[in-house]
Design a protein around this nucleic acid. Structure first.
Lengths: 254, 254
DNA sequence: CGCTTAATTGACACAACTCAAATCTCGTGG
DNA sequence: CCACGAGATTTGAGTTGTGTCAATTAAGCG
């Protein structure tokens, strides 16, 4: 799972997140989760309304500013996080500092699932974001009580694996133009067209991050985007929005 | 599990640790699976001896020559295969014929798990191999009857995902020398040392395949191996076996 | 509105690729 | 058991797509 649209540049408050608010009468038992924007996605989508109390009592939402680390590669994996809004980048770092972004996470994506005790990657917000924290033990308990959660986890992991293998193909075989074209096409499939119906993509992350995702330097990315623009395939609307003028050209290049 | 840099331990998020291997061979009722070399690995490792009849009746072993395709990318995914012996390469192909090997499968690895109805990659033997076929519906039934199988599947998929992300790091960031060094080290961790105790790796696949896995041309791979040999890090024993003379040099290069 | 950071552009370098030829491997048949 | 031939591997020479370095321009923010 990866990119998508997202929004706010608005700042949010980091420090002390409010614990579960006291609940009200009728709807109370379902708690905060009932109205969550990611309610039907990720892990939570595997649960029925009646199960929501299990979620509400074991998870806690967090508002995060941009550039805030959520999990750190190698650190003890004590919790998983479901993205409710915003966007995060997931990356691995080599000893000498080189970084490879393995994906971008958006609403519904789950971050921090670990094979062993340590996180496999660092996750950091690229825009102000809201994530929902659940301890690993709570997740384990949730899986035991609700087998569907395990199935959902398997489904999500399988999709991620498939995406990772696509990325391996991209990084192992494709040229710079092909990588960028593939990236823009993949994004455009997940985002809504403009008012006039032409497809467009929103790129809230800095160019250097897109480059780090595609295995390219920002300079190379910049040159490729210019080339695609000259070729009439795209138009740069703003720094963070691109209109796809001719998907066919991109398809041909990807 | 395709081999890659991280031969991680058991999943922590995921319940099922490795059950003890079957103790007695006297259970004829369990049929062919009881003596299988992959009995304790892959999916089968999630089952206890008493469950083996379920396996024996729904799976079927196949002996394959080298260069035999087992599943084809995009084809309807009707079955999964557990590798019992030998080695297979898994790869994706671009429209113009470029191929990227996403992994090599050896004993215990499961091939053909698909997110949607089509296989995500082509799998082809690189040596004569034996695989065990199980239809998708049989697998589904097995999962229903034995929840541990689903857990095992999740664990295996998670390990694969982690390996895929390591490969993304390798392809996105590393130089040719770093790629080859990482590859040799990862292999050496999984293979037994020579009689005299020095670590060595066995490379039954052609060099062009190793290159296709590392995102390198065979010529480049050849030159890198020569450089590592001159540097005293390795020795070419035969065409398909390399002795690691100095792991530290490889570590430094990886 | 000024300052800091991000993005772009240009000039150049180099790691890896391409093309081509030589050499090695290994299975096969005599 | 050895010679043969097809394919694999290695080596060489030259090319090129990206990376690197540096300077300029644009964008975001207080």
């Amino acid at each position: 799972m990866t990119f998508s649209v997202a929004a706010a540049t608005t700042a949010a408050i980091v420090p002390p997140p409010i614990p579960a608010p006291p609940t009200r009468a009728a709807e109370t038992v379902t708690g905060r989760c009932a109205g969550c924007s990611a309610r039907s996605k990720g892990l939570c989508g595997a649960l029925t309304a009646g199960d929501l109390p299990d979620l509400s009592t074991t998870s806690r939402p967090l508002d995060l500013l941009s550039a805030t680390p959520v999990v750190m590669e190698g650190e003890e994996a004590e919790a998983v996080f479901t993205v409710m809004s915003g966007m995060l980048k997931l990356y691995k770092t080599l000893p000498d500092g080189r970084q490879q972004i393995t994906g971008f996470a958006t609403a519904g994506d789950v971050i921090g699932l670990a094979v062993d005790s340590g996180y496999a990657y660092t996750a950091e917000t690229v825009t102000a974001s809201t994530v929902c924290r659940m301890s690993r033990t709570a997740l384990r308990r949730l899986m035991e009580r609700h087998p569907a959660v395990q199935g959902r986890l398997l489904a999500m992991t399988s999709v991620e694996l498939s995406a990772a293998q696509d990325q391996i193909l991209l990084l192992g075989c494709k040229t710079a133009v092909e990588r960028v074209s593939s990236f823009l096409l993949a994004l455009s499939r997940r985002s809504r067209p403009l008012a006039d119906g032409t497809p467009s993509v929103f790129l809230p992350m800095p160019k250097v991050d897109i480059g780090a995702y595609l295995g390219l330097r920002p300079e190379t990315l910049s040159r490729v985007l210019r080339k695609l623009e000259v070729a009439g395939a795209i138009t740069r609307l703003t720094n963070d929005r691109i209109r796809i003028e001719d998907p066919a050209v991109l398809e041909a290049a990807a």
